[in-house]
Amino acid sequence: MDFVQVQNLCKSYPDAAMGEFKALDNISFVARAGEVFGLLGPNGAGKTTALRILATILQPTSGTVRVFNYDVTTQADFVRHSIGFVSNNTAIYDRMSAWELVEYFGRLYALPDDRLYPRMEKIFRKLQMEEFRDCPGVKMSTGMKQKVSIARALIHDPPVLIFDEASLGLDVMVARALQSIVMDLRDQGKCIIYSTHIMREVERLCDRVAIVYKGRILDTGTLADLSDRHEQTDFEELFFKLLSQGDEPRSPMDIRLDLERLNAANIAALKAVN
């Protein structure tokens, strides 16, 4: 079941230096229940913009985006109830304890008390947050903060979870813990969109990936598909090769061919999964 459908999504910003900056240039992908879909790309590739559109924080310039079958522009309220968004930019409040913060968001999601508190207890136990539940945000370490953010995103048990560079700045221990949480969520049948620029994470976590560069998807598919297609088993090499190709000036004809190939790959991947 396609929980996230992105079709021909474009996003442009007015930009003082370049006039108009195309952050996203016609990207399309789908993500299904029970899979981790990775968005892999260097910094500034447009991953965050795409995920912000999924989270209804930004409006698409054109194209359609459906999350849990709700349209992000016309049914934003429903979309926000169906997602949990953890991003580098979604910080936690300094002057609020972990418990208070999760409680606050739970109430915003209109959870009744008899559902909210048992769920909070469960999440706090599962994420091992009990020892710092009354600690104010300002005194927490980066790892603790990230855990609180995840708890905040999980409180309403959404079907779709979006992690945007969630492992940034985490030490090995916490990053590992995050990965196990993500895998756990996938096993529960959630649809997870996971953006990162770290190769190892992709290899460990993602069922399928899209490689994003300069607002475009260079290639998409399972890791096996990608290495077959590019005849490269080392994923880091593959990534680097794709990016270098993306930098070369291309004729419109090339772009068109690329795109057709990409679409074909997408369809093939879809068929394979279904």
Partner: peptide, 14 residues
Amino acid sequence: ERGTLETLLCSPAR
């Protein structure tokens, strides 16, 4: 500045 606004913007509050 602190990045908490985006947390609120993706919550159900309009």
